[in-house]
Write a protein that binds this DNA or RNA. Structure first.
Length: 746
DNA sequence: GTTCTAGAAC
DNA sequence: GTTCTAGAAC
């Protein structure tokens, strides 16, 4: 056994500016028992900031000399640190030490370190830290690390310092992940907006990721300016003078906390599209007031509350003014300043339904309201959402009953969340309407219609529950109904039992969301909405009448007369024909073509075609296995396009390298790497279970941002994406690894 | 599905 | 200036 070999460690530090990387190195090296060299990008250029390649060169030299090294640079994203991981692989332990300290602390330290005075510097430091954190990808062992230490606070850091100081030349630290790993927490949109407000010149193009746990709420000691972001996060920056405090437009001195659920069914909603989607506030406020007025004119005793987190919010004041102009009953519609996830506990306002400004994926993350709601509701909301819908297109909404285990349900009394997707005017987000406000306003109107109709549908089904509750409770709060638009109260809701009964007679007007839907769906709004927005549930339109262009007939001709295309086809069987895709999008890309007449595409497939699907799958599998036997590094996926361009049902058998000159645009990529691509295994299961396949043929899927199919990183254009995927060896997402969706060499 | 190309983005 | 996208024609 080899006992006397000296070990060399390469420790890659990761952390934002101000996270304490250099201090960490200094602390270790002060008492270290083995020779360390610190490679610091900030000082590598003769005491000044240097380049990555200088760092790589010095690190390689130090390792060659048998010294252990600290790579002291931010290294926050995987690509940044990849070359350092690869460096000098022989007999070197590769470790990561992640200084994942609160952004507040990093910002504060950065500000102090620069020694500059004044709020602009503070803002700049915040911008830099946030820009860094935007790119943060926590390291994984699969990147090539043998050991990762996560530090979230000073105690963790001290522990890591001790561990590394104590290492003598013969020691080896155990491998694995140590310390607690936070979820990737990124930038807070509100922070960047705020920075713009204080005129920080170099602000960051925010990507809408959330920075959930960055800053504690009440910490305002160091600086005298606090900003309350949409996630109830307080960022401390500079000395701008004003202290923004929590507050609301709503009844001063109201005893709202005493309100019971049965007082008035209430929907609280954020302004849709005016934050990250950059929709014009003036135009948005017109739409809000218009749709609110329209909805209230048909509704019974319900309440709508427009919520914004910030005091002096422009959208709230615009809406207030316009609602007052239109004499909208302020008992039924008012604005409220507060956190939509804490309306009851912090604001005393009971809302049984809240709306979420969702993203199209209906996933947590993003900034602002979406992140806040998913975070406050806990993981059960994500699960419940998934049951209702897989994605959402602009102008639509989906109603999600909140499980009773959700904290939002338990402490806030929220029974439903309605996810709404509004129009996007932000060029950095999918489906940007590029200032087309005629379309934008139309979609925004649809979004509010969908939202309110969703709310109405909930109220319809909840009426009996509410009635029962109200009979037990006599609590009232006329205080809550104070006029918010400067008028006198007109209605004190003396008897909510009656009111609620009246509510049950609420009827929706012609549901725009239902247009083009079969009649049997039109009667049930919630159901129809779910189905319309929810390709997961079922395809509404039979879609068999699609007109195929002449150019789209090629596969059909081959399927019908394969013998006339001997040069193109690889194999002809009774049911299927196998051919190379004429424009392969990967090294290996075959099509298994159904020969049966009448199944142009997946939408035509029914249970009677199940055997055919199984044959196609088996043939595809066989071909993929053949490729795999020749090249074990390949990985295959078998599946269908939800809405193919070429007529005649065909199964794609495609290797996952996507290394092809024919892969040229977003549509090409997204058609194989979003839910638009339906795995053959899932299609067979669905056809077996439901008699047809789920189709995700929303165009928005094809114009999605470009994301790596392995590590899910986003890339600005096709060339950059291709360059990334040629190197990315991250494991595939878990969903792809399940259920044999991916085919790997045995 | 591709090709072509105007014009946006860099 | 070059690169890249996206829409129209096929």
């Amino acid at each position: 056994m080899e006992v006397d070999r000296e070990n060399i460690s390469k420790v890659i530090l990761m952390g934002a500016p101000g996270s304490g990387k250099s201090t960490f190195c200094d602390d270790v090296m002060r008492t270290a028992r083995r020779p360390w060299v610190r490679i610091c990008q900030d000082t590598i250029g003769n005491g000044k900031s240097g380049t990555k390649s200088q760092c790589l060169k010095s690190a390689a030299e130090a390792l060659k000399d048998g010294k252990s090294v600290f790579i002291d640079r931010c290294n926050l994203d995987r690509e940044q640190r990849a070359e350092f991981v690869k460096l000098g692989v022989h007999q070197v332990d590769v470790h990561a030490v992640v200084l994942d300290l609160p952004a507040r602390l990093c910002i504060s330290r950065s500000v102090k370190r620069t020694g500059h005075e004044g709020n602009l510097q503070g803002g700049k430091a915040a911008a830099v830290v946030n820009r860094m954190l935007q790119k943060k990808e926590l390291p994984k062992l699969t990147e090539g690390f043998s050991r990762i230490t996560f530090c979230q606070n000073e105690i963790d850091v001290q522990g890591a310092v001790s561990t590394y100081s104590a290492l003598d030349p013969l020691d080896t630290l155990p491998s694995g992940c140590f310390g607690q790993k936070k979820q990737d927490a990124k930038i807070q949109l509100g922070i960047m907006k705020f920075l713009k407000k204080v005129e920080v010149p170099d602000t960051v193009g925010s990507n809408g990721n959330s920075f959930q746990d960055s800053v504690s709420k009440h910490e305002t000691k160091e600086k005298n300016f606090s900003f309350k972001g949409p996630e109830n996060v307080t960022l401390l920056v500079g000395n701008a003078g004003n202290k923004v405090t929590e507050g609301r437009d709503f009844p001063k001195g109201s005893s709202a906390g005493a309100l019971s659920l049965c007082d008035v069914p209430t929907l609280a909603f954020p302004s849709i599209s005016t934050a990250d989607f950059q929709f014009n506030h003036e135009k948005a406020s017109n739409v809000i007031v218009e749709k609110v007025e329209e909805f209230l004119s048909n509704a019974g005793n319900i309440r709508l509350v427009l919520v914004d987190l910030t005091h002096g919010s422009k959208i709230l004041s615009l809406v207030r003014a316009k609602a007052a102009q239109k004499n909208i009953d302020s008992n039924k519609f008012f604005t409220f300043v507060g956190d939509i996830t804490q309306l009851y506990t912090k604001g005393g306002l009971r809302c049984n339904v809240i709306a979420n400004a969702a993203n199209w994926r209906l996933k947590p993350g993003g900034g602002g309201v979406n992140a806040a709601i998913f975070s406050a509701a806990g993981p059960s909301l994500e699960i419940a959402t998934k049951e209702q819908a897989g994605s959402l297109s602009p102008g639509n909404a989906v109603v999600v009953p909140l499980p009773s285990t959700s904290p939002l349900y338990k402490s806030e009394g929220v029974t439903h969340v309605i996810h709404v997707l509004g129009p996007n005017m932000n060029p950095q987000r999918p489906n940007c309407l590029e200032n087309d406000y005629s379309k934008g306003c139309k979609v925004l109107r649809e979004a509010y219609s969908s939202l309110f109709e969703g709310f109405a549908s909930i109220m319809k089904t909840q009426t009996t529950v509410l009635e029962a509750n109200c009979q037990k409770s006599g609590s009232r709060s006329s205080e809550l109904h104070k006029d918010l638009f400067g008028k006198s109260p007109t209605n004190h809701f003396p008897n909510s039992d009656q009111k609620i009964k009246r509510d049950s007679s609420y009827e929706t007007k012609g549901n725009k969301k239902c247009k083009g839907l079969p009649d049997e769906l039109g009667s049930d709004i919630a159901d129809a909405m779910v189905k319309k927005t929810h390709p997961k549930n079922e395809k509404i339109d039979c879609g068999t009448s699609k007109a195929w262009g002449s150019w789209a007939q090629a596969l059909y001709h081959i399927a019908m007369h394969p013998e006339e295309h001997k040069n193109d086809v690889i194999e002809i069987a009774d049911d299927v024909v196998v051919l190379n895709d004429l424009y392969p999008k990967a090294q290996n890309h075959l099509l298994v073509l159904a020969r049966m007449e009448g199944i142009d595409h997946l939408a035509d497939v029914r249970r009677e075609h199940l055997e055919l699907l199984r044959t196609m799958h088996a043939v595809g599998l066989k071909k993929a296995e053949k490729f795999l036997s020749d090249d074990k590094s390949l990985i295959f996926r078998l599946g269908y396009h939800s809405a193919p361009s070429m007529r005649q049902l065909h199964l794609h058998v495609i290797s996952q390298d996507f290394n092809s000159k024919h892969l040229k645009n977003k549509k090409h990529w997204n058609s194989f790497n979003t839910d638009f691509f339906r795995d053959s295994v899932d299609v067979m299961e669905e056809v077996d279970k439901y008699g047809k396949a789920i189709l995700n043929n929303d165009d928005s899927l094809l114009s999605m941002e470009l994301r790596c199919h392995r590590c899910r990183s986003a890339h600005p254009n096709i060339p950059r994406l291709k360059s990334h995927i040629s190197n990315c060896r991250a494991p595939f997402p878990a969903t792809l690894l399940q259920n044999c969706r991916l085919l790997l060499a045995a």
